[in-house]
Design a protein around this nucleic acid. Structure first.
Length: 269
DNA sequence: CTATAGACCTGACGGC
DNA sequence: TGCCGTCAGGTCTATA
C-alpha cells in the first residue's frame, strides 16, 4: 500500500520519464476515479499540457501542468503508475506522452483518485507536517502528542496531524520505539517521544532507500518491486518472531486497523 | 470537538 | 475443483 516512502519512490522514478513531456492524449476507463471536473472534461483539459514538475506531499502526487493547473493523484491502497507496462491489466487510465511512452494508472481495487486543482494548497493545507522535513523536530512531535488522549497509533495515521505515515510504517515505528500502539498519545514520556521521533525518521528513510515495500500491490513505475518489506520486523509479521526477543509477533485490531506488535517489547499500558 | 461506523472496490485466501 | 465468506486498509462522509 503506497505510503510516504512508496509515493516518494514513484515520484523519484517517474520524474525522468515525465519531466518536460507533453501529454498528447488521455483515456479514462473508470470515470469515478476522476473527482473533478468530469472525466471527459478532465481528458480534454489535460491533453496538450506539458508536465513542468512532479512533486509529493504526504501520500499525494502533484503533476504541475504548463497551464498552471495541478493534476493531483492519490494511489489509495492498490494504485500504481507504470511506464510502458507489458499489458494493460487493471489500467484505469492511460496517458500518452510526446516521446511515445505511455503511463498507466493501474489500480485493481479502483480506490485511486485523480483530479484537477488550481494549485496544491487545497490538498496541502489540510495535511500535517512532513515527517522527514528539517523543521519536523522532537518538539514538533512532542506538541502533537502532548494533548491527545487517543491511542498513539491512530494519531500517527491521521494525515491532518502528520502527513504520509500509513499502517505499515506506524507499526514499524512503534515497534522500533518499543511503544504499544494503544498507549494514549499524551502518556508517552520524554524519552519515549524521542525514541518514536528517531524511529519514524529512520524507518521512513530506510524504506525510501529500499524503494518502498511491495507487500501487496505496490509496483514501481518500471515494474520492479520495492524491497523495504524485507526489513519489516513486525508489519504483516503473522507467524514470525520478534527479532529482538524471539517472542511471537501478535496481531490486534486498533480502531479497525490490523496492528502488529511484539507483546514483550511493547508492553500493554 | 472526538469517536466510531460505513462506503468505496476486488483479489487473495481459508474452510469445507 | 469450486463456492462462499472474510479480510485488506486510505480517506471521505455520516452519525452518535
Amino acid at each position: 500500500m503506497p505510503e510516504l516512502p512508496e509515493v516518494e519512490t514513484i515520484k523519484n522514478e517517474l520524474l525522468p520519464h515525465v519531466l518536460g513531456r507533453k501529454i498528447t492524449g488521455v483515456a479514462v476507463f473508470w470515470d469515478k476515479m476522476v473527482k473533478q471536473p468530469t472525466a471527459a472534461e478532465f481528458c480534454e483539459r489535460v491533453t496538450g499540457q506539458k508536465i513542468t514538475n512532479l512533486t509529493r506531499r504526504g501520500k499525494y502526487l502533484f503533476f504541475h501542468l504548463s497551464s498552471g493547473e495541478m493534476l493531483v493523484m492519490h494511489m489509495k491502497m492498490t494504485g500504481s503508475l507504470l511506464i510502458n507496462p507489458p499489458d494493460a491489466k487493471f489500467a484505469r487510465a492511460i496517458f500518452q506522452l510526446d516521446n511515445g511512452a505511455v503511463m498507466h494508472f493501474r489500480d485493481p481495487r479502483k480506490f485511486g483518485k485523480m483530479w484537477l486543482a488550481a494549485d496544491e494548497s487545497a490538498v496541502a493545507d489540510k495535511l500535517g507536517p512532513e515527517p522527514l522535513d528539517n523543521d519536523f523536530t522532537v518538539e514538533t512531535l512532542t506538541k502533537i502528542l502532548r494533548n491527545r488522549k487517543a491511542p498513539v497509533k491512530p494519531v500517527l495515521l491521521d494525515q491532518a496531524i502528520i502527513a504520509g505515515i500509513g499502517n505499515m510504517y506506524a507499526d514499524e515505528s512503534l515497534y522500533e520505539a518499543k511503544i504499544h500502539p494503544v498507549r494514549p498519545a499524551c502518556s508517552l514520556s520524554e524519552v519515549e517521544i524521542k525514541r518514536l521521533y528517531t524511529a519514524i525518521r529512520r524507518v521512513l528513510r530506510a524504506a525510501i532507500k529500499n524503494k518502498g515495500a511491495s507487500v501487496r500491490n505496490y509496483i514501481r513505475p518500471d515494474g520492479d518491486i520495492g524491497t523495504a518489506h524485507a526489513e519489516f520486523r513486525v508489519a504483516h509479521g503473522t507467524g514470525k518472531n520478534c527479532p529482538r526477543c524471539g517472542t511471537l509477533i501478535k496481531r490486534i485490531v486498533v480502531r479497525g486497523r490490523g496492528t502488529y506488535l511484539c507483546p514483550k517489547c511493547q508492553p500493554e499500558p
